[in-house]
Design a protein around this nucleic acid. Sequence first.
DNA 1: GATGAATGAGGTTTCATTCAT
DNA 2: CATGAATGAAACCTCATTCAT
Lengths: 198, 198, 198, 198
Amino acid sequence: MRKLDPVKHEEKRREILGAAERCFVRDGLQGASVSSICAEAGISPGHLYHYFSSKEAIISAMIEVRLAEAAARFAKLAEGADVLDTLFGEMTVSRSGPPLLLEALAEANRSPTMAKALQDHTKGVHSLLAELLEKGQAAGAIDPGLDRNITASLIISIIDGSKTLCLRDPKLDVKQATKALQTMIIRYLAPPPDPRTR
Amino acid sequence: MRKLDPVKHEEKRREILGAAERCFVRDGLQGASVSSICAEAGISPGHLYHYFSSKEAIISAMIEVRLAEAAARFAKLAEGADVLDTLFGEMTVSRSGPPLLLEALAEANRSPTMAKALQDHTKGVHSLLAELLEKGQAAGAIDPGLDRNITASLIISIIDGSKTLCLRDPKLDVKQATKALQTMIIRYLAPPPDPRTR
Amino acid sequence: MRKLDPVKHEEKRREILGAAERCFVRDGLQGASVSSICAEAGISPGHLYHYFSSKEAIISAMIEVRLAEAAARFAKLAEGADVLDTLFGEMTVSRSGPPLLLEALAEANRSPTMAKALQDHTKGVHSLLAELLEKGQAAGAIDPGLDRNITASLIISIIDGSKTLCLRDPKLDVKQATKALQTMIIRYLAPPPDPRTR
Amino acid sequence: MRKLDPVKHEEKRREILGAAERCFVRDGLQGASVSSICAEAGISPGHLYHYFSSKEAIISAMIEVRLAEAAARFAKLAEGADVLDTLFGEMTVSRSGPPLLLEALAEANRSPTMAKALQDHTKGVHSLLAELLEKGQAAGAIDPGLDRNITASLIISIIDGSKTLCLRDPKLDVKQATKALQTMIIRYLAPPPDPRTR
DNA sequence: GATGAATGAGGTTTCATTCAT
DNA sequence: CATGAATGAAACCTCATTCAT
């Protein structure tokens, strides 16, 4: 009876994280208050501290979850056959991207904790990407002259940048933009035309 | 009876903006407090409100200045002869980019004021870029099949994204990354090889 | 899990209102500061906002209480048999009247919220008074020629005015003044001498 | 050239007082800020302190002016022949009375300075009124049994109270109310019917 | 006479957090 | 597990006032 169910505990944690995320999206990482999170989660402030030791812990946990999700999504895509399809899965321009990514990037500029989390997560995605590129190069689908590590970093940064497209121009045609983005990637990665075949 | 120097007023405003920027970079837009700005500027809290009506007004003014600077820098580059040179001027990967850009982008997700400022500024840069591309196409240096508007947007977003490169991987070789970035742009913009010449 | 005592909550609210009232009497509605109220109530500033959402809410609640008390006092008096006795109960001139009435009246000139509260409360007292007057007229104790509504308003305003007597002349003989006030009311309300009885 | 014109000085003072009054009426004695007064008067804060040594001095001066005006108005009325006409001149119910009177009365509860000013001014009006009543009694127009001092105080308080009529009931018929007020005064002051004449 | 720069205390309110129950 | 009372520092901003020009 007084044994705490660790499953329920984790469930509640996730519930709170969901509420917190809504608040952070609405008000920013620094702008959202603990009490607003409590209100959104429907719990008392005292209770929240049973699950998280501080506001910062909530942010860390939430970012962790978000980054893990992104990595998982990417890993799943990577299982697919085609290299480019994988990339394009993450590279869709959309009007409402994950707003917390920008918050996290901004925060990483200042907070070493956030920077660490971001870099750790990046490493995972980066190596996955580098692997993909290697496969592509082996298969002749990708320019073998490209440095895999640099290219992987570049692709990640392009995905980051694509999140600002709609922010900067709300009237942007997302379909066209997505297509153009993919064209650019294709042209970059494509192996140079073999002079012998011409 | 004689009006006091409006020049001095503007000077002080700029001084305060400088102090504010240092604080915002250090602590974030929401994290920096008015009193910390006052301390950094060496003035009293009451006095700050002689020059700015609110913290938000400080942020707006500062962002305005920053965006104007960026636009001016870009316009100056655009005067140069070569299209690609112009682009590459802004596209250098560096370890300490303008940290406020990410803050502003994150804020634009929530604050309509910030979003408006960002979009207005983007418009200016965007049309400049589109013009450049047009010239390049006319000169045969750029693929005439590319939509100038979409491409301009894309290039801006890539510049945005390039600011995250070092955040995500502090050990990144910036020179190589810069070069790779430029390669990507070149391959994207290059006109397709003329079949007749082969 | 079990709800905490709402009775205690209400008690604390009342306690704070008491402290607030002392401060407002001492320093005026605008002159009293929230922190002085906190000090008087022996609580921290943050805690006060658990019970009242703003300083204005405190004022509203306090005025509400005061006006309700006044109305209740009046209603109780009205249960007594005699019409004039009832009136005179409220009409005693005293050296230390309810100082907040004047504050509230002054505030009502500017704040629609306060004006509304005052007018709502006045309505209650006014109808009670009009009823009383009607009874008196029916019983022949009051001049049937008087308009009950106007007379009720007039009486209320006279009670208001009586609060300034000692302010304007601190050496005033309150007993005599009270008597004179009552005389005036008597003469006003008295039915005209019946010519037939003379 | 460097002799200051005392006339101009006085003029400016009055101008500032006028602006101050508008502010005080709008925002209350404590609610109006010095800078709002400066804005209303179209002068700089530093300049205001050439004319008044403090905010309190402004309030004092303004109240002084207002009370003097009231006294003068009253004195002028008193020159007229009829006693009652004089009284009724001041006793009109109006929708927008001098709002500062209530502020001043409230303030007098707390500030000895204000209390003193109010009491001094009251003395003047009071003695004038007592004189008037005496004349009326001598002429047989007023009940000789009334104590002149008490009656004068009472009348003043009734005038005070009449300022709250429209505050408490904004829909009040001011004409009827004025008439009723006068009726009351008449009935109070009227000499008792002489039994011999009946 | 007149300006507006400058102050610093203090205004109301919100914050993250702790604790008794 | 869960509450909400309680804290006190700090948030943004306004205030009355002074001073150099």
